[in-house]
Design a protein around this nucleic acid. Structure first.
Lengths: 83, 83
DNA sequence: AAAATCTTTATCCTATAGGATAAATTAGGC
DNA sequence: GCCTAATTTATCCTATAGGATAAAGATTTT
């Protein structure tokens, strides 16, 4: 596979997009007084470490569309609020 | 891995969520007079077949968060419009 | 009616996203 | 200051998401 990416968006741009989402997720999670573990378990993830990596955009991890859908439901919010 | 899913959302619910998004993507793509191939290439996907499967929720395929981000940019829209 | 264009269907392959573990660090409560 | 809770860091494993191919079908254009 080539490192060349022919899409209309750069990898850096995509990374910033994911990072922006993570910041919002953290903001609303803390606002609802939920721990990372509580929210992770609610959306069906048994690993707080994986959750933490996503929320901090570490080790190449980030939330995917399905995660966001479940997080929105867990926090009683609209998925658009993270975008 | 178990078939049991302990998340707050069922697989059926997630499937409907993805399907709903796909319908919106098709609606706006056609509204902008773009072909599936044109849009696929714009977002960096060389396979109109893969794009078609996503847009029709066939063979277990669906758009992911990154796809939607790029599609929104390609159609000069806001990603929220698909959610 | 034929050709071109667009879309769909089925199937295959593999890089990596998804998610786990363990240990270390940080933060909060008492 | 100590203990517990919460979070972070690094690394590993593997099922599957991502995306390709090829052929067939449907639609549009000429």
């Amino acid at each position: 596979m080539s490192d060349i990416d022919f899409s209309n968006v750069s990898k850096e741009d995509v990374y910033e997009f994911y990072k922006d989402i993570s910041l919002k997720v953290r903001y609303y999670r803390e606002n609802k007084n939920m721990t990372q573990l509580e929210l992770a378990l609610e959306i069906g993830i048994n690993s707080v470490a994986f959750y933490s990596n996503c929320e901090n955009s570490k080790n190449g991890k980030h939330f995917n569309l399905e995660h966001l859908y479940k997080i929105a439901k867990a926090l009683d919010m609209n998925i658009k609020d993270f975008l």
